[in-house]
Structure formats: structure tokens, C-alpha cells
Write a protein that binds this DNA or RNA. Sequence first.
RNA 1: GGCCCCUUGGUCAAGCGGUUAAGACAUCGCCCUUUCACGGCGGAGACAUGGGUUCGAUUCCCGUAGGGGUCACCA
Length: 555
Amino acid sequence: MNYQELANLIFPEAKPISYYEEKYKKRDLAEGAIVTRFAPSPTGFVHLGSLYQVVIARKMAKQTGGVFFLRVEDTDQKREVEKGVTGIIASLRDFDLTPDEGMISETDEIGDYGPYKQSLRKDIYQAYAKYLLEQGKAYPCFATPEELEEMRAKQEAAKIRPGYYGVWAKYRNLTVEEAAEKIKKGEPYIIRLKSEGREDRKIKHHDVIKGNVDFPENDQDIVIIKADGLPTYHFAHAVDDHLMGTTHVIRGDEWLSSVPLHLQLFQMLGFKAPKYAHIAPIMKEDEGGKRKLSKRKDPEAAVSYYTEIGVPKEAVVEYLLNIANSNFETWRKQNPNASIDEFELQLNKMSVSGALFDIVKILDISKTVISKYTAEQIYEEAYHWAKNYDAELLELLQDKEYALKVFGIERGNAKPRKDIAKWSDVKENIEYMYDKKWEEKERQYEFQKITDKELIKKILTLYMEKYYHENDDKQTWFDKIKDLSEELGYAREVKEFKQEPEKWPGHVGDISTVLRVALTSRSNTPDLYEIMQVLGKDRIKNRFEKLFLGTEEKA
RNA sequence: GGCCCCUUGGUCAAGCGGUUAAGACAUCGCCCUUUCACGGCGGAGACAUGGGUUCGAUUCCCGUAGGGGUCACCA
């Protein structure tokens, strides 16, 4: 018996690899075009770190005229989550990061290099495993879990490197006859790579992000086909990325230490190895230390978190781009309105170590992004968000015409308002512009300098009777508040007051604060003139009167 | 523990043998015709540490410390 016969015994149905090599043609792309992918396992929600990888990988493909595809790595049935693929695809769509090729739903896919779901590629992996078996580069291993555990215990006790290698690789040197006999007897087995590597030899690897990294060669006889007939990650990676024409493997740096193995796999299979770009993880400060942003501990690790609190997708993507290439920020400053597609991302400028996640920074970016929106856009986005997450806000937004007026306050000019960081801020931001809300909510008037009720009453009455005119332009409007101040013995100008503070009881600002607080019950609001314009005379009057009623009742 | 990687202000980071060591967020102060939000100006704040190499090290080499990753029939 020889290797060929043993291979036939193990995988009698497998096609020769030439079949697949011909079936999947080399991609016809321009020189320098990057083909890359996102290859998640459907094990739960999409992590911010995954989104980060997608942003980078997709951008690299786009800016070189290449291809970005989505491959689902579902070779571990135990960890698989129901509707996992749907969740991944939905998340990518939420951020406008849809792939060019690959899975587009739980069951459907597009592209010529499929299936893009690994569980559907079983026959392909087996063909390549058979190919290795035929050459004696792989072998069946009959070690039971107990045997393996015993081996590990011995290694640990002896303080030597654990693993299945060298003299520890018990089934590595079985003759084909012995192996065939065990198989025929029905003994369970898996397929291992017969490693030709030596631990005392180094391999040189140039990582696109990490730079030059030297490793010992891999000498572990790693499993390539598991007991369920499916491949391990390593083997699937080599076969798939070869067949799918991946030029750059862009993935998390937890894979960096597997590079020697992966390179070896490509070499033993006779494939050209792709370039690797290992991305540092996004970290989080934890009890003085740093750790990866964690699915379990950190709500902000899930990309859905941002849709839930209402951070616009562009803000998340810009933040990620900013972590990726710090010159993005400079570019953005110079090109405030350019599409991010115009920014050229460079992998070799990426940081080799993990950055701490900074929610304050992402919200700052978000504020800037939102400040560039028109009132109409804000309305649409806030409405869309409210529909999913906030019924109260949704109700406020029913009157679109009015909402647009409210959102239009101090917007569309050279220095637009920058007070909304996320859609969940909106309700709090605009509430007081709605009479119903304004009336049903318990109001606390926090008058600042002027607190005397009689004086407040006098200011409001005088203002409405003598000074307020709905059609005044802003300058006239403000001049009149100055006139009012003067009539009450307050300084017309803040500057004058500051020069001789003993001359007046206060200044125009104190008077306008009374108007502001009486009208909105807040001391911080956008431009009061615009607020008054939106509210209109009757409602202003009404609110002032309500205030008197309230104070009299309490008095 | 073995192997690999990393270490510039609170955070993200420029830098790549000679710099007053950029910039952004955060923070503090002042200014911006009324409060905020912006914007402008300014302040405070950093090369983990010890040895080398060099005329000269943040930059190059070695050690130490600290941090991270990885050592599965999981990806």
C-alpha cells in the first residue's frame, strides 16, 4: 500500500485539485489591485474591532480597484449562532460597508468564487487534504482526546514545549498499512499536517503593518481536517484565500503568531502566499491595565451600540479611520466636505500597537459630522432613529414643518450649531420648543442674577407691551432689549458694565437671561431671537403669562 | 513559562541621529456685540528605565521593568 491508496481510502470521493484550480480562474484585475476579505464566524454580534477591519480592508480594495468579499467561517458548529450571518450582513449595511462579493443573506451569495460559506466547501477542503495525503505531507492521526491530554500533562510536568510535534507525534510515523488497518477497523481519526519545519530555524516575515517579524518555523503537526470532516481555520484559510485570489489578508493581530504555520501551509500546498496585514486591536482601560474591548464587559464593543445611541455611521467610520491613519484628521481638516473615499489609506502607516478606545473622541467627531447636516437631514436621521428607539421623540417629530424650523435654528450658516452628538441627545435638545412637553414637564426656572419675582414680572410685562414686535429683524430686536435694559436702569452694553460695574445693578445680559429662562426654563439655549421667531408672539405671551400664574400660585 | 510584538503629555499620535519634540480630543484661562454650543488666541502637560555606539541620541544596539498577543479536533 502507498500514500495514494491511503488517500483514496480516506477520501474516495474527492476530486483532483486540478478540477478546482481550473474552475476558479485567476482574477483579471489591474496591477496593484487589492483583493481582500472579511471572514467572520457567525458567533454573535459584530464587534467594533471587526468593523475596524472591514473599514480598512474595504477601503484598500476600493482605492486600488480591487475586490472586497465576505466569507463566512462557520467550521465550528458548536459556536455557531442562529441568524449569525444575517446579523453580520445587517451590520455591514448599517455602516454602508457592503461587500462586492460573497454572502448577501443567510443563504444567498454573489460572485464567481463561491461558495462563500465554509461549511459548503467541505468537498474542496477534502480534495486538498487528499492532495497532501497523496504526497505523504499529511497523515491520519488516531490520538484520542485522553491521549492528547496525557501527552500535554507529561510535557507540562517536564516543562517542555507543549504540542503535537517531533517525538510526541505518535501517529506521524505509522506505516500506511498500519493506518489503513486502523481506518478499516473503524477507529476514529483526524488529518494532521506532517510538518517539515524545525523549531531551531527562523523564518523571516514582512508584515504590511507590523514590519519585519522573525519567527521559529512551525514544527507542530496541526490538525487540518477535524473529526466532523470540516477543516480547521488554518487549512481553510490557505485553501480559500488561494482559490478566491486574496492578495492581502487583513485581520486581527491575534493571528500574527500563526503566520509561520500559514506560510508553511501555502508552501506545502504549492500556493503563492498572500501578503499579511495584522491589525492591532482596539483596547479599553481596565483597572489600570489595558485589555481588548470585550464583548461581554463593554457595551461599546458591539457596533449595534452606535446605532442604538444614534451615532451616525459616518462618525463611527471616521473615528475608525482616524485610529487607522492619524493623518486622516489633518486631511479632514483640509477637506471638510470631501467624501472619505477620497482619502488614501496607507496600511504601513497603521499603528503596530493597540489604541485605547475613546468615546469622547468619537462623540466629538460625531458632533462635527452632524453639524454639517442640513435641518432636513437631521430631521430624517432623528426621525429614523426615533422610530426604532424613542416613541416620545417620534411624537414630537410628527409635525415635520415645525421640526424643520426647530432644527434650523443656528444652522446652515458658517458656524452651525454643534450641540448634537447623537440622536439620543435630540429630545432633550428640542423638548422645550414643544408646548405640550413644555407644559407637562415640571419646570424649574433657574434665574441667574435677577431673581426678584416682581422685577421679573415687570421685565416680561414691559417687554411684551412696549418692546417686542414679531417682525423685528435681529438687530432691531436686540436694540430693543437694550432699550428695555436702559429703561430699567441696567447697562446697555456688557463692556460698559464691566468697566464701571458699580454704576448699574447689572447689564443687558441679565435682562435677556430673564427672557430666556422665562421662555424656555433653561439658562442655556441657542440664539434667543431665533427661538422667539419659531415660537411666535402668542406662544411667547402665553408662556410668560403661565409663569406669572405659577409664581402667584406658589406665593 | 516558551515564542513574538510594543513603550512620546490623561487619550490618539507626528517624528525616523542635531527639532523651541507637531497636531487632534480632553483640561485651564482670555476673547468673540445676551446664555450655551461653536470659533479664535493662549497656558499647563510627554520621549518607561539602566547601560552602550556616536561629536551628538526620542531616534541605533543590549539589558531591566511594564503592557499586549499566542501556545485547541475555536476562529
